[in-house]
Design a protein around this nucleic acid. Structure first.
Lengths: 234, 234
DNA sequence: CGAACAGTTGATCAGGATCAACTCGAGTGG
DNA sequence: CCACTCGAGTTGATCCTGATCAACTGTTCG
């Protein structure tokens, strides 16, 4: 049951057959452990394997020469960290937020499994499309929403995604990011993120400290973030 | 040779076999024509077919209730407009910028072709991943680049993508968008976009009017946009 | 004990938004 | 044929969201 988080992601649209599950189980190598802050996936790399996050959290980022950084995704268990690496070299890095356990699926054996079980390829494709849908929603937020709505929206998303993986009850969730991480994800400065957080706290919508998010007023938070979960395709 | 633009996109990583090309040719129905301004793909739709842009240009957008709009992509011939529709309902619309010709690939027959030619599915998957890479680059721009760099960067991208489809010589390219379209793609106001364009023109980097982009100083434009084409994976 | 980092606060600044008005075609209909 | 409208582009004036700079607190950790 090592790959259980991955199966949960892959089965969001259609269940896998026992044979498909077995094929994945057969090809995975021993999971690797990484410490917080380590790069799980390197920018510019042309990987020979797919990494799947089993435990812990991570984030995807592009960083410019002068240090400006954009975080394009936060990753929860079950997420495949480098699907693009199946086809091309990576144009971004993935960095561990916490200690992480990562399953490794060698490309050669994964591609063989795709040949033997075409639906497996479709399932991986499908989760890469959901990730793209999240990118579009983030673009909408960064481009067109206020800082206040952006922060609220991100917290709504993370609560739901973590709940889908059994890591949250919908009220409290582990989200071990600094305010700087939030800023880099939302296109804000750290100072302004801090002030928006104080607003959200002051309105009794949530608390966020020590890497834990607690939603105290879910309808209020959704409204503040103009949040509609349709784009998550759960 | 109706599908020639699609083949050009699909073959960016590996050539298709004659059998694979034939399979696509066999399943395409008569192309449809659309007028400028018409929605080619409707938000919320759950399509039964894939649409491929053959001629003309289009853009992908999410629009909020109050009219704020984020354009998440501009599409050139050969682009598949609704790959996510293979797996899920669409969370955005695609609108024609010009009169367009669109090829229609029914899902049922496309899926059969994927079964018969697994590499076809991989090729479609691959172009959906390139699109996601572009999304990430746009996020970086909207979140972390100045308005000036954003505008320059977008023009660099469009010149290269249009050139890859044989629609530009690398100097001049058809790009029939209004300044409002640019603003909605870049997360700016129309007024500010106008002023940035004047700057870029004033520095002799480009001219942009009547739906035509002319690059007068390519190195200068690249520098202004902090542009590195790696993310296009050409 | 001292670094180093995350968070917080205040003061100031600026990039870009907003509002409003005007120009300039390109239709379009009387 | 002209008046009218409408959309796109342009300009100026003003405002404001959020950036920047700097200092300070608290905590953790070596």
């Amino acid at each position: 049951m090592l790959l259980h988080p991955l199966f949960a992601q892959l089965e969001r649209h259609a269940p896998l057959t026992p044979a498909e599950r077995q094929a994945l189980t057969d090809l995975v190598t021993a999971p690797r452990r990484f410490a917080a802050g380590v790069d799980l996936v390197q920018d510019g790399d042309r990987p020979r394997e797919c990494r799947v996050l089993l435990t812990g959290q991570a984030f995807r980022h592009k960083t410019l020469a002068d240090g400006r950084r954009q975080i394009s995704a936060f990753h929860v268990p079950g997420d495949v960290l480098d699907i693009p690496g199946l086809f091309m070299s990576l144009d971004h890095g993935v960095c561990a937020l916490t200690a992480c356990e990562v399953a490794v699926l060698p490309h050669s054996r994964l591609q063989a499994a795709f040949q033997a079980h075409p639906n497996l390829a479709l399932a991986f494709w499908s989760i890469s499309l959901i990730e793209a849908a999240i990118f579009r929603e983030w673009m909408l937020g960064i481009g067109r929403r206020t800082a206040y709505a952006r922060v609220a929206h991100l917290f709504c998303e993370m609560i739901l995604r973590l709940r889908a993986m059994g890591l949250s009850d919908g009220v409290r969730a582990p989200f071990p990011v600094t305010q700087q991480h939030l800023s880099d994800a939302l296109g804000l400065s750290a100072v302004h993120t801090n002030r928006v957080l104080q607003q959200l706290r002051g309105q009794g919508l949530l608390s966020f400290s020590g890497g834990e998010l607690v939603v105290m007023d879910w309808p209020g938070l959704q409204a503040a973030g103009e949040f509609d979960a349709a784009y998550l395709h759960t």
